[in-house]
Design a protein around this nucleic acid. Structure first.
Length: 419
DNA sequence: TCTGGGGTCCTAGGACCC
DNA sequence: TCTGGGGTCCTAGGACCC
């Protein structure tokens, strides 16, 4: 059996842990720049606020219903996540951290385990230790565990937030209940096509022929069908190095000057370099993109990207910033109001297997230099050492009007308790 | 005025090789 | 009418996830 542990309304729950006065009250959490609503408590969902809704369209509704609004506080969520994961590890022989708020656990080969009781204990322990409520789904395949999890979340009283699919009867019951678009791996587009064919529930999907599924949904769709039928084809996955690393941002305002864009893009390149070093990798190609505000039809639009094959593999701040600026120079056009830019590094390889070139190589002096920079920035606070092409005064100009304290990761923000 | 960010996998078709 | 057979690599685009 596989278990899927999924935190309920994770970001909203994290905020609520430190604001118990908000229990039972509607909460939403915003994306970077306070642009969209990316998490909602159950109370906020009940008000009909959809996932991904632009904030400005819902401001009136939020105000009228006294919804509490939070800017995204990723240092808090990341820390809460690792606390939850550490507790799950104590309950499991093998765990796969699938995302910031969910993990699969492999219980294959574990007999004589009362999974219902174990799930309930795990849930209670996580709730008591971190304040985060979770739902648990358990089934013979990962896709069925996802479905079971959905049932646990939908019927918390009846299932005590732990649902197990361990018989043919329960499997069929779940599939007849689950809408096809809610199957893990069937997205909006496929769901729309399937509905036209009268495929409404996960069960109907399993009745389609293999050849139709293969033809229209590729091997991925066929795997899903098998998993729904109870045949496990998706195994546990181990943590792998990223194959691409991106740093992209919308700006808090529109930029027209080359110098402003260059500062942003080189800073993004430096962030990519830091992320590469964290996983001990090098990259050998890079994409830089810039574009104007696509939501504004009254403004002139321009959007371009450029992929640069680097002459050597590197993770140096200096070299990547240099290449990013060179790429920007080629695609920048004056007189446009730019709203977003990004740097994505690809062709990633391991630091240990640095392939030297006959003609041109990464400056070997940068290796100890980056080590020293990382050490200082880690100790003295990020961004103490910057490149000259980066803005010295700028720390972070994102709009974050409703930011909560970093309760668990910043000494000055630690919560005070009066007893 | 205001609309997020970061990933993975698969396929078809073109270009090329012998 | 009819024009071989077997490969690889790369890219763009689609679909999906959180």
């Amino acid at each position: 059996m596989f278990a899927l542990i999924d935190c309920n309304n994770f970001y909203a729950s994290c905020e609520r842990v430190f604001r118990p006065d908000l229990n039972g009250k509607p909460i939403v959490v915003l994306s970077n720049n306070d642009g969209c609503i990316i998490a909602r408590s159950n109370e906020a969902k009940a008000l009909g606020i959809p996932m991904g809704a632009p904030l400005f369209q819902y401001e009136a509704l939020l105000k009228k219903n006294h919804v509490h609004v939070f800017s995204a506080n990723f240092s808090l969520y990341g820390d809460m996540s690792s606390r939850v994961m550490r507790i799950i590890e104590t309950f499991a022989p093998k765990i796969e951290i699938y995302s910031i708020d969910e993990a699969f656990v492999d219980y294959r080969g574990c007999y004589d385990v009362d999974l219902q009781a174990m799930g309930e204990t795990m849930r209670k322990t996580i709730l008591r230790s971190t304040g985060i409520p979770v739902s648990i789904g358990i089934a013979p395949t990962k896709v069925l565990a996802k479905a079971a999890n959905r049932i646990a979340k939908k019927y918390p009283e009846r299932t005590r937030s732990v649902h197990i699919i361990d018989s043919e009867d329960l499997r069929l019951k779940a599939l007849r209940w689950l809408e096809v678009g809610d199957v893990w791996g069937i997205g909006y587009r496929h769901a729309r096509r399937l509905k036209v064919l009268g495929v409404d529930r996960a069960f109907d999907f399993t009745q389609l022929s293999d050849s139709w599924v293969l033809r229209n949904m590729s091997i991925v769709g066929l795997r899903l069908k098998k998993e729904l039928l109870g045949e496990s084809v998706l195994d546990m996955e181990s943590l792998k190095d990223k194959k691409s690393i991106a740093t992209t941002r919308s700006f808090e305002k529109r930029y027209t000057e080359y110098s402003d864009l260059s500062e942003r893009v080189t800073t993004f390149a430096v962030t990519c370099a830091e992320k590469l070093r964290r996983q001990k990798s090098l990259c050998q190609s890079m994409m830089v993109f810039i574009h104007t505000d696509g939501h504004r039809e009254d403004l002139q639009q321009y959007s371009r990207n450029m992929v640069l094959k680097l002459p050597f593999a590197t993770n140096s701040n200096i070299e990547l910033a240099h290449f990013a600026d060179a790429a920007l120079r080629k695609i920048f056009k004056p007189n446009y109001a730019y709203k977003k830019a990004g740097v994505i590094v690809m062709d990633i390889s391991s630091e240990k297997e640095r392939q030297l070139s006959l003609f041109e190589n990464s400056n070997p002096k940068h290796v100890p230099l980056m080590k020293a920079i990382d050490r200082i920035n880690h100790k003295e606070g990020r961004l103490v050492i910057k490149l000259a092409c980066q803005d010295f005064k700028r720390t972070w100009k994102m709009n974050q009007t409703h930011l909560s304290p970093r309760y668990t990761t910043n000494f000055s923000d630690i919560i005070q308790v009066s007893a």
